Amino acid sequence: MIAEDSTLLREGLTHILGKFGHEVAAAVDNAPSLLAAVREHSPDLAVVDVRLPPGFKDEGLRAAVALRQEHPGLAVLLLSQYLESDYAAELLATGDTGAGYLLKDRVGDVLEFLDSMQRVADGGTVIDPEIIRRLLGRRRGQSSVRDLTPRETEVLALMAEGRSNAAIAAELTVSHAAVAKHIGNIFDKLDLRATGAEHRRVLAVLAYLKR
């Protein structure tokens, strides 16, 4: 499912996804049509522009949040021209299924975009690296993040980008055991205790994104 008011981008995404073997159930240009189309087609993934008609404010985000509450299994990848960490945090707070927030510039790299989309569809979390870089500086004065070591901060930033433990290990050239240890330390320092109802990886990213 695609919801994008730009005809060029909407048609381009439809063409690209079809070319790479994905079925686009519907492509719409406004929030009310997105709500109706998801309810009709029950897609696995919705790619949604944050700002949609009729108001061009946050209608896409509002629709995505409502749909994830109605359809807990729906994965959502938000697209935006703007760096708004609150949008990413609000989407992530709606459930444990796949969620992502990317700047529209990322669509220009087709393979990177498709990889991000697939990770979200598979239940992962993908946050635009530019948001992560901006938040690194913003959160230095906050105690929970300040308590993390530089390496733990790197690991959490990669987690927020949607990287798996194996991908983090490869990126940082460390063992899988070392990554697991760093993530355990992050959970402890952010006071994210294991329970059957909580997805600690998502909660860690939420703690990282909240202002």
Rank of each mutant, 00 (worst) to 15 (best):
V155H: 10
D191N: 06
V107Q: 14
E161R: 11
Y82E: 13
L91F: 03
L79F: 05
G100W: 07
M117Q: 14
L111G: 10
N165I: 12
M117K: 12
A89I: 05
V179N: 11
R134N: 12
V179H: 08
L92E: 04
E161A: 12
D86M: 13
E161M: 10
D115F: 06
L91V: 02
K189V: 02
V120F: 06
G162P: 05
R151W: 01
L136D: 13
R151T: 08
G137H: 04
R146F: 00
T125W: 07
R119D: 04
T153Q: 11
L156E: 11
Y82S: 05
A167S: 09
K181D: 05
Q142R: 12
T173W: 06
R193Q: 07
A178M: 09
V155P: 09
L103N: 05
I168T: 04
D115L: 04
R193P: 00
V120A: 01
L103F: 07
E171F: 09
L111R: 03
D105F: 06
D86Y: 10
S80R: 06
V110M: 09
L158V: 11
A157P: 04
L172S: 03
S144P: 05
D86S: 11
K189P: 01
G124K: 00
D86E: 14
L156D: 04
K181A: 02
L158S: 05
D96K: 15
G162N: 06
A121L: 13
L192Y: 06
E152G: 05
P129E: 07
T173M: 07
Y82T: 00
I183M: 15
R151F: 02
V107W: 11
Y87H: 13
R134E: 11
F187W: 14
H176A: 06
H176G: 12
S80L: 08
L114N: 04
R119L: 11
E112L: 03
Y82N: 14
Y101T: 09
S144E: 13
L83C: 00
G184N: 10
